[in-house]
Design a protein around this nucleic acid. Structure first.
Lengths: 345, 345
DNA sequence: TTGTACGCGTTATCAT
DNA sequence: ATGATAACGCGTACAA
């Protein structure tokens, strides 16, 4: 199988390589006839430019990368879809890279930047406890989107961030439950390392309880197992079983992600507990699914569409030097649905 | 910001570029002291090899690509996760590429092959009505995994395929419903173009009905809207509303994907129809979620794990020329769960 | 408008 | 064990 290069095409058409180059790159300085001739030869021989060689020369690869930690998380797939559309609008290509749980996202980012000569990076999810020194090595602008909080000691001029205030929104959910008459509120939390979203949401839970004079009962805090798939439904299911096994009474269960909540729903059901009559169940994220399951899930909806659009817009603005780095916090929305009820007085 | 190249590192260490190259590629012919010296300089200056330049030279980039049509589909994310693990085991890297609904996967594949010098391709989902001529241009082996059927006129020696017999499995589900006493069985089907999985599953539905002497009633066939997100829950929801609006009576609803079924579940619920007491509901795919929702969903489970593993193994075997192209069909499993019941005599 | 020649950063070949 | 050098395929001055 013959793989034509630009030289071959040039030879075939009896022109120089630069002419072929001009043809494929829509360069203005070219005769439309020669261009047509070249393009048809390209089609005929199935020539596809080698992007590696191109990127080696080019300075301005119109591309960005999206680095996702946990592609199985439906919350991220929603964001990715929107980001992809936004990139397309701007005629940029998007490189999607999945980061393993144990990989260092900044290392991966560096590699990808070098490799693809791209212009910017979006980090989706993950935990960013990286040293300032390391972040400085990233030569293209980057935006942390829906990640946990970034340590204070890192200059905020180095990066942009798009997020909701996980701690506050989480507190809001718990406050809603308290106002609905719940005092024994259990929480299902994953990945409670420093600065992670799990930790922030747990903090918010504690904030709300304390603000209402309710003691935080460690027996009602259920940490999911520490292996892979932190936010999986399976994890939610198993952890809830564990929680129920403790025999502690509670009237509401708050899972720090919708997927965990759905797993919890089944565990409750199997124990004979009805949602919401016996236990009110709440999630966090606002993924599509929560609106369709029965009962629909009370949750905190992050404005995915808006955040994804702004993430992209912000990155492109920074690339074009139209703006400096920014830190935008969004209001999430408490969606009260069928899975939670007021406790009768 | 200074971006060191291999030359810079060589100069800094007072060695030749080839020595540095040997160091980073774990070449045997190198003194361990010099190697250590070089590696520490690399760390100090934050040098990362440019993959474009590497791929330009190399013949054997240890990488494959996975081309997915519809990354938002949870069924695919499950497969991707497994494939990724399998690649890692073999020390291969995996390039994940999302293909837009309107993009031509073979064109994308060609581009990616050229660009990354990779050794093989896995196509996940999508519809493969490509000309043989076009497929021949792909210079690396490829495997179609869980795609629709491929037209007969394309030589099966050109490619491998991994799939379940969608038509037969679909018929099996419908047969189960018939045996449960249902005769008015509605179907929710998306993307019913030639050879697509939607079409195959619809064919299976018709097969089963006919085999049992039940006439196919067009009024019970509900095609989802023809725009984006064929298999989305929203589509399932809206289409079911449309179906219900027709006023046709049915005792079972079979959705050709689990996601559609979940959307349907809500539409039924809102109309006051209980699952399974009033309407039995069935899906297809066997995604995790179906096991956790209440009621859990009766579905056809494709052996995701096994299929993903075999897809990867097969591709690597073909790359290593240990085998020729193969076409493997898997048995899917009918999972009878809570969403379907026998109709009382 | 078109062609020639150089260099991008790396690996592989050949010397040493 | 190490170093010099020729490719890899392309874009782009610069010359024509």
């Amino acid at each position: 199988m013959f793989e034509p290069t630009i030289k071959d095409i040039a030879k075939i058409c009896g022109v120089g390589v630069s002419t072929v180059s001009r043809a494929i790159n829509d360069h203005p300085d070219i005769n439309s006839e020669t261009k047509e001739k070249i393009m048809s030869a390209i089609r005929e021989y199935g020539y596809v430019p080698n992007d590696s060689a191109r990127n080696l020369k080019r300075v301005d690869a119109k591309a960005i990368a999206v680095l996702v930690k946990g592609i199985a998380n439906p919350f991220f797939t929603g964001m990715i879809t929107v980001i992809e559309q936004e990139c397309k609008k701007r005629h940029y290509s998007m490189e999607l890279s999945h980061i393993e749980a144990d990989e260092d996202e900044v290392d991966v980012a560096q590699k990808v930047v070098k490799e693809k000569r791209l212009r910017g990076i979006i980090f989706l999810g993950g935990l960013f406890s990286h040293s300032e020194e390391k972040l400085k090595k990233l030569t293209v602008p980057f935006v942390f989107s829906t990640a946990g909080s970034i340590p204070e000691n890192i200059s905020r001029k180095l990066y942009s961030s798009i997020s909701v205030d996980d701690r506050r929104e989480s507190a809001r959910m718990v406050e809603y439950l308290i106002r609905s008459g719940h005092t024994r509120i259990a929480i299902l939390v994953a990945e409670a390392q420093e600065e992670s979203v799990g930790r922030l949401r747990l903090d918010g839970y504690c904030d709300a309880l304390k603000a209402h004079g309710i003691a935080v009962d460690p027996k009602l805090i259920c940490q999911t197992r520490d292996d892979r798939g932190h936010f999986s439904m399976e994890n939610g299911y198993l952890s809830t079983q564990k929680l129920l096994g403790r025999g502690e009474a509670f009237t509401a269960l708050y899972a720090v992600s919708d997927t965990l909540a759905i797993g919890a729903m089944r565990a409750l059901y199997e124990t004979g507990l009805r949602v919401p009559q016996d236990v009110s169940l709440a999630g966090y994220d606002g993924i599509d699914m929560t609106d369709y399951i029965v009962p629909s899930l009370t949750t905190i909806r992050q404005p995915v569409e808006e955040m994804a659009k702004d993430t992209t817009r912000l990155l492109f603005d920074i690339i074009a030097k139209r703006t400096k780095h920014q830190h935008i916090t969004y209001e999430a929305k408490l969606l009260v649905r069928e899975s939670t009820i007021k406790i009768p007085e």
